[in-house]
Computed example of a mutant assay.
Amino acid sequence: MTDLPSLRETLDAHGLSAKKSFGQHFLLDLNVTRKIVRLAGPFEGRAVIEVGPGPGGLTRALLESDAGKVVLVEKDPRFVPLLTELDDGSGRLEIIQADALKVKEAELVDGPAHLVSNLPYNVGTPLLIKWLTGPWTPHALTLMFQKEVAQRVAADVGDDAYGRLAVISQAVCEARVVMDLPARAFTPPPRVDSAVVHLTPRPDRPEPAVLKRLEQVTAAAFGQRRKMLRSSLKTLGGAALCEAAGIDPDARAETVDVAGFLRMARAEI
């Protein structure tokens, strides 16, 4: 990687710039991308999937690491030739030109794999929900979001940022913010700061049916978060559902912890 031209030189040579429609903001500082990879690892030879590699700043750091196969999923075809230049012929790098929302990760890698990505802002949350609730379970996820979204993923009950995304994320994983990044670290700089979240799947991951029910319960509860649960959950059982789960029907969504929402998702009324 040290023999390669800088990321900025590579972008200039290919005449490439970020597309606003794809939510692209590039990390060109390899010191930053190497730090993110260190926070994500060690990989111990396991595969890594990176979504939205763009010019390949994070990719270069991954290829320097102890990762095994590195699979890139890039929607923007402009970057495929540039990323191909990182291939040393060892077979370790694979580039998939596709929409990550439609990709089946289990078909890309054998066995456990990490997800490490500077996610495009416009699809970060849908991708996270896909990985949390879908049939494929990653070994760990280290993902960059807008700072506000990162805070929503890792928020504790009672926090202003606590909501549906925190409940679903933390029902499936242990989640913590491990790095903050100012807007000026990116090219072009976004209007907001960013943060990296590290998520480790829990061994007691809820069953698919429970996760589906959890999505319904949290959507109703936080969709009308100012209302008491007996009202916001009326279509799902209201007070009876709360009482079956040992939750006060007069409570509001932001006061119920993840375990409480899981009990409601499992309750039979």
Rank of each mutant, 00 (worst) to 15 (best):
L4T: 15
P5W: 08
S6H: 05
R8F: 03
T10P: 00
A13N: 09
A13S: 15
H14L: 12
H14V: 08
L16S: 07
S17E: 13
A18Q: 04
S21A: 15
L27R: 01
D29K: 04
L30R: 14
L30I: 12
T33N: 00
R34D: 09
I36T: 05
I36D: 04
P42G: 00
E44M: 06
G45C: 05
R46Y: 07
A47Q: 07
V48I: 13
V51P: 01
G56M: 10
G57Y: 09
R60K: 14
S65Y: 04
S65V: 08
G68C: 14
K75E: 01
D76K: 12
P77G: 03
V80D: 00
P81A: 13
L83K: 08
T84H: 12
D88M: 13
G91D: 00
R92T: 09
L93T: 09
E94H: 08
A98D: 15
A98Q: 13
K102T: 13
K104I: 14
E105K: 11
P112T: 01
S117H: 05
P120D: 01
L128H: 05
T133Y: 01
W136I: 12
W136F: 11
T137M: 13
P138E: 12
A140M: 07
T142K: 09
K147W: 08
V153N: 07
A154T: 15
D159K: 14
D160Y: 12
Q170L: 10
A171R: 11
A171N: 09
V172I: 15
V177Q: 14
A183S: 15
F186R: 07
P189W: 10
V192I: 14
D193P: 09
S194W: 08
V196Y: 03
H198L: 11
P201L: 07
R202E: 09
P203L: 00
R205L: 12
P206S: 08
A209C: 02
V210P: 03
E215M: 15
A220Y: 05
A221G: 13
F222W: 11
R225Y: 00
G237Y: 10
G237W: 09
L241H: 08
C242D: 01
E243M: 04
A253F: 02
A259I: 04
R266H: 00
A267Q: 00
